[in-house]
């Protein structure tokens, strides 16, 4: 499909050009003139124009003071840090409220600490964090194995859903995986024979 051109549905006066593309407003000259809107064209659209008046628009104007909250809040007390929480160099310290999940640890944690020596304005900050994320993935695998758990990669990557909803794709992936595995095995065998 390329586009829906249903003049009766929307009530526009469509004018099809030679490549099949409709222009709903006639000529450029028409549009450049004073805007006139026939509201009856939108009668079939429930709620059309309900928020046409800016007074009905909840985020107009963009900045509003005081905030329209049901209960005017007081500034939050400072949360106590019970784990290591990194903070941006663009701040003097921790914010009053923060998350405490997954404090930095291991090699990835070292990379994250290094990243937080640079400001958000410095691309090294972000690239180091992305690197830390990839390292952390490896650490996660090792952690699983060290606890005697072999991660079920097939299930974690939604293999069952793929098989159920896209069996052809699942078959393609299985064939590709088998081919890659075969190439690796053949390469290993060939290398051993050459020794």
């Amino acid at each position: 499909m390329s586009m829906d051109t249903q003049p009766s549905q929307h009530g526009h006066s469509h004018s099809a050009s030679d490549d099949g593309v409709d222009s709903a407003r006639g000529t450029a000259g028409d549009r450049a003139g004073p805007k006139t809107v026939d509201r009856s064209r939108y009668a079939h659209i429930v709620g059309w124009g309900a928020d046409l008046d800016p007074a009905n628009r909840p985020a107009y104007p963009m900045e509003r003071t005081p905030p329209r909250l049901p209960h005017p809040p007081e500034a939050p007390r400072q949360q106590r840090a019970t784990v290591e929480v990194l903070h941006s160099t663009e701040r003097p310290g921790l914010t009053p409220v923060f998350g405490t999940t997954l404090p930095p640890s291991g090699l990835s944690g070292g990379l994250r600490r290094l990243a937080f020596r640079h400001s958000e304005n410095d691309v090294r900050h972000w690239l180091l964090l992305l690197l830390a994320d990839r390292v952390h993935m490896g650490e996660g695998l090792l952690e699983d194995l060290s606890r005697g758990r072999v991660p079920n990669l097939y299930a974690e990557m939604g293999g069952r859903a793929e098989l159920r909803h896209n069996p052809a794709g699942a078959a393609r992936k299985a064939a590709l995986g088998t081919a890659v595995l075969a190439v690796i095995v053949l390469a290993v065998i060939r290398r051993r024979r050459s020794r």
Binding site: A59, M62, E63, R64, T65, P66, P67, R68, A75, P76, V85, L86, H87, S88, E90, R91, G93, L94, T95, P96, V97, F98, F116, E120
Partner: peptide, 18 residues
Amino acid sequence: CRKELYSNCHATNPEATA
């Protein structure tokens, strides 16, 4: 938040200012 820019709150995210 006093300007109703709640998504830009400055008091709940130590890791970034943006």
